[in-house]
Design a protein around this nucleic acid. Sequence first.
DNA 1: AGCACA
Length: 458
Amino acid sequence: MSTSGQQQFRYTQTPSKVLHLRNLPWECSEEELIELCKPFGKIVNTKCNVGANRNQAFVEFADLNQAISMVSYYASSSEPAQVRGKTVYIQYSNRHEIVNNKSPGDTPGNVLLVTMEDVQPGDVTIEVIHLVFSAFGFVHKIATFEKAAGFQALIQFSDVETASAAKNALDGRSIPRYLLLEHVTSCHLRISYSAHTDLNIKFQSHRSRDYTNPYLPVNPTAFEGFVQPVLGTDGIKKEQESNVLLAAIENMQYAVTPDVLHTVFSAFGTVQKIAIFEKNGQTQALIQYPDVTTASVSKDALEGHSIYDGGYCKLHLTYSRHTDLNVKAHSDKSRDYTIPDSGMLPGQQTSSYPTAPATPWQNPQAAAGYPPSGYGTAAPMGPQNQVPSWDPSLQAGRQTFVSVPSTFPGQTFALSPGVAYVSAPVSPAQAVSSPLVQSSHVRPPGAASPAGQAAYYR
DNA sequence: AGCACA
């Protein structure tokens, strides 16, 4: 019992038939899981693609001893458990059975429920959805709606076969970027079967279509008053600018506080308000500037950059629909910098940073070879590092990372850490002179492979 | 790299 050594923590949990596996490759299949676990016993249930990164899973053995044998084996093995060459960490789950594994969403039907991750409703138009799914057969009807899970669409095919073909081909993939709005960096598709068999579409509108009934009335109010991105003539691209930026923070290994964001975003102008919140398991933030131009410059300069080197806390910026945030003046999730802070000058607001020990924009060399193992490697951020307003000299000395351009969503962790320096950081002056919104050029749909598959990003 | 709710 007294196994001395570093792995003793593995035994601190009470054994369970259910094992919790983490650090799996993204979208690890059930087959791969079973392959890994079946040498140790009979697997009666699994739950894959769990967690925000879909890189965790649960495996339930028929017998407790089988689970124990697997944990024990890898606890003492010199070779770690691996899937696709990635070390998998195994521990006992704190639950004793996997519940609800077979959801209704696994029962095939002719209607698919598609969840588009990491996008705002309206970022993906119904035309694009139609285009993407038409590659597998005639799409009868589409209804889109906003749920807590995100932006969702019900897509009705003629039959189960067509629907499952589309599901198999597209589930877990991303809509090719050239079909997306300029500011939309990725659109993962999560697809399950709906229990519906026939959708009841009442109007042709920006959120619902019935392609079997061209005479269906067009909802007269459906297209106007629509705050979502304005559709271009091709119905595919265009975005609405705003003085408020929405930042989706990817790969958030460090705490991101309002003050950290303030430091980063103040480089381009006065930051008025900041709000941080969780959405769909991802941390997002709203950053309010006084005007659209400042927001636009900031957005162009910071998009895709990471707050910390190594690709941590990577920012994806879009324009928010908000124009004026209503936030608590001083909480751990929000700040209103427009409210005069008695006894505190604006530049002194850095005085209390309980949770922001890492230095944004730190010199990459400083951390080279030091994978982030906590906050220790980063120097505490002091007032001297605060950037209250634009200062070219600071910007010149500031080095930032940008991920390799070909980094696809979901592969972020799997890709080599080949990050590239932005050798000439974008200065606001340059950014202003360059177009704020790129041309709405869209490659023709024919550019997609006929099967509609090769073009989709894994 | 640390627990599942759609």
